[in-house]
């Protein structure tokens, strides 16, 4: 039992890293733009399909293919922000939910038209390879996925905390109006943040596509999980998204062993509710006082 629990915990940490990567874009976008991008799940699936095309057509490994898919998704993100988000001048927070949901449905429709509703998977050579660890085995793809997440999230933290542009992003996250007043191009920051969010979706999509069979409808389950992660972590907190993703996956995997797999999600939600009762702003969220 102890070995099984340890294995579940390790697997939870590794898969939690992948969810952290996918959720990081969502929370970054919220932090900078104050919008909830409910299309993030669909964009992750779009990323998975881009990796699928590269892999199936040109036999490009999904991890290597990120050199193509991440810049491509970044550009798509910038364009989407310019076309769909920036025109929202009033009631931005509410309208953005509708707009990004419409975006998700549009992406789902296009993917369904091009790829049909068939389930796809990225059958790479290492999806059955494993390495021994503490007396059990860990599938290599999860190790590779976790390493990728560490690299990308590390780079994201470096950009945010060690560069002038990162300071501009953080300033915009703290107070959009004040940032504008001190000369920061918040519109430009928003477009780049949206692009970064899409690039992380591409990376998350590649790993998701290797570990899970997916089709154009897969984004519904995914976005509900990602939203849960950023609510627990605190809306707009990158650190919170990472910690919450780890908590969610470790809790679920361990609960699967101790109780049963079908109860794992319920156990996590009990924890989520308990945390929100004590800290309504989430683990790393900040309470905002608004004048009314």
């Amino acid at each position: 039992m102890a070995s099984q629990l340890l294995q579940a915990a390790v697997l939870g940490v590794l898969t939690g890293g992948v969810y952290a990567l996918m959720a990081s874009g969502l929370t970054l976008i919220f932090g900078v733009m104050r919008i909830i991008n409910v299309g993030q799940g669909a964009l992750v699936i779009l990323g998975a399909y881009l990796s699928f095309v590269l892999f199936n057509t040109w036999h490009i490994d999904p991890f290597l293919g990120l050199l193509v898919t991440m810049p491509a998704m970044f550009l798509i993100g910038v364009v989407l922000e310019l076309v769909f988000i920036r025109p929202l001048k009033t009631d931005r927070e509410s309208l953005s939910v509708l707009v990004t949901y419409a975006l998700a449905l549009g992406i789902e429709g296009v993917l369904g038209f091009v790829f049909t509703a068939n389930y796809r998977e990225l059958s790479v050579w290492y999806d059955t390879a494993s390495v021994p660890l503490f007396g059990f085995r860990i599938t290599l793809v999860y190790v590779f996925g976790f390493a990728l997440c560490l690299a990308i999230l590390g780079a994201l933290f470096l950009v945010l905390y060690r560069t002038t542009f990162g300071a501009a992003i953080r300033a915009t996250m703290l107070n959009r109006t004040a940032a504008q007043l001190i000369g920061i191009d918040v519109e430009g920051v928003s477009a780049v943040a949206f692009g970064i969010g899409m690039a992380t979706a591409a990376a998350g999509g590649a790993v998701f596509g290797i570990t899970t069979a997916f089709n154009p409808n897969s984004h519904y389950d995914l976005i509900s999980r990602l939203l849960t992660v950023i609510v627990l972590g605190g809306l707009g907190s990158l650190r919170g998204a990472v910690v919450a993703a780890l908590i969610m996956l470790v809790t679920q995997d361990v609960a699967s062993v101790i109780i049963a797999p079908e109860w794992s999600a319920f156990v996590f939600f009990v924890i989520l509710v308990a945390v929100l009762l004590v800290r309504p702003q989430g683990l790393y969220g900040v309470r905002v006082r608004e004048r009314i």
Partner: peptide, 20 residues
């Protein structure tokens, strides 16, 4: 012995339990 949803899900916990 375990039944699981016929909808596509993450089968890892079930496979893990069978293997264990």
């Amino acid at each position: 012995y375990k039944t699981y949803s016929s909808e596509p899900i993450d089968w890892t916990p079930y496979a893990q339990a069978v293997a264990h």
